[in-house]
């Protein structure tokens, strides 16, 4: 049910290390906000679209993934177009869509486990100060991926129970049992984790 957004492939972007991609994305974001010349921003948008498509993602899938964010970008650009000037609208549209496409390209070329490894590595310095334990973060991520389908199925059961009793399905009457039933499992799950010795102290 929970599949990652990464696309299998061997493009140059796929071969780049995760940290390098994140740093490049960050630098690109800063540079894009410093630029306001359309002669540079328009080619940047074309380049980022080409880069995104070079990851091997089809045009339809690429559109499907970015359409919501691009729609908000379009709204913001339209506000600039109407309230400021057409030029300003074009600048904002090019700048923000370039950034969105670059970010989508990084996501499309980075596998979940590779990204998680990088996060664990970045968290290790924090571990020394006692803020968070990197192993706990990976454990929590694993637990979420494991339990989403189960909680979704439980929601379906609660809705079915409502229908069987002839009750209207209301957010409140479904949410409360869903939350209580789910959180009540916490003790058993925690005991099972401790019994297996996953978190050595």
């Amino acid at each position: 049910m929970l599949n990652g957004l990464d696309i299998e492939g061997n493009s140059p972007l796929h071969r780049l290390p995760v940290r390098g991609k994140l740093i490049l994305l960050f630098v690109a974001a800063i540079v894009l906000f410093l630029l306001s010349d359309l002669r540079l921003l328009a080619p940047a948008l074309a380049l980022s679209a080409a880069l995104y498509l070079s990851t091997g993602i089809g045009v339809a899938e690429a559109m499907r993934r970015t359409r919501f964010v691009l729609f908000t970008v379009l709204l913001v650009a339209a506000a600039n177009y109407f309230f400021q000037s057409p030029h300003e609208g074009a600048v904002v549209f090019c700048r923000l869509s370039t950034l969105v496409l670059l970010a989508a390209a990084v996501t499309a070329t980075t596998g979940i486990s590779a990204f998680m490894d990088e996060i664990t590595r970045l968290l290790t310095p924090l571990e020394r100060f006692g803020f968070v334990r990197a192993a706990d973060v990976s454990l929590a991520v694993g637990l979420v991926i494991r339990f989403v389908p189960e909680i979704f199925a439980r929601y379906g059961e609660i809705v079915a129970a409502h229908k069987a009793r002839g009750l209207p399905v209301r957010p409140l009457t479904t949410l409360t049992p869903l939350i209580i039933l789910t959180l009540k499992d916490a003790d058993t799950i925690a005991m099972a984790i401790d019994a297996r010795g996953f978190r050595r102290h």
């Binding site: 929970l2 454990l139 637990l143 989403v148 909680i151 869903l178 789910t182 959180l183 925690a190």
Partner: peptide
């Protein structure tokens, strides 16, 4: 238990 509660609630938010 805290970690499990956090993970379960995150899963509820996803659902």
């Amino acid at each position: 238990r805290d970690i499990v509660l956090i993970a379960l609630f995150a899963a509820i938010i996803v659902v």
